[in-house]
Amino acid sequence: MTGYYKDEDLDRFGEMGKYNQELFGKFMSWYTAALEPGVLNKREKVLIGLSVAHAIQCPYCIDAYTKSCLEEGMSLEHITEAVHVASAVRGGASLIHGIQSHNAADKISL
């Protein structure tokens, strides 16, 4: 990761609390709690995180959740399958909007 996104910037995440510690603190508590094992286990949660990271294309999240997946005993095969799920849902989301296009065309067509 070079240029606009720098590896070392992830370690500076805490600086986001500089101008509003209260909101940042609340975010961190919520984030930490959301990742704790619950009905879903840790592995399922980091795999969801990885998929979302790819869907939103956040380089920091991709790095962090790839590592988390490896540390939960998953391999590149697992990771690749999860990325396909994220991509397929994302692709499907575009495709289903074809109906909106058809609807819009119907409105103005004879």
Partner: peptide, 14 residues
Amino acid sequence: NPSGAFMSPPQETL
């Protein structure tokens, strides 16, 4: 053994 520079998964799960 992890196949890189990362920590091991929980033993029971793996």
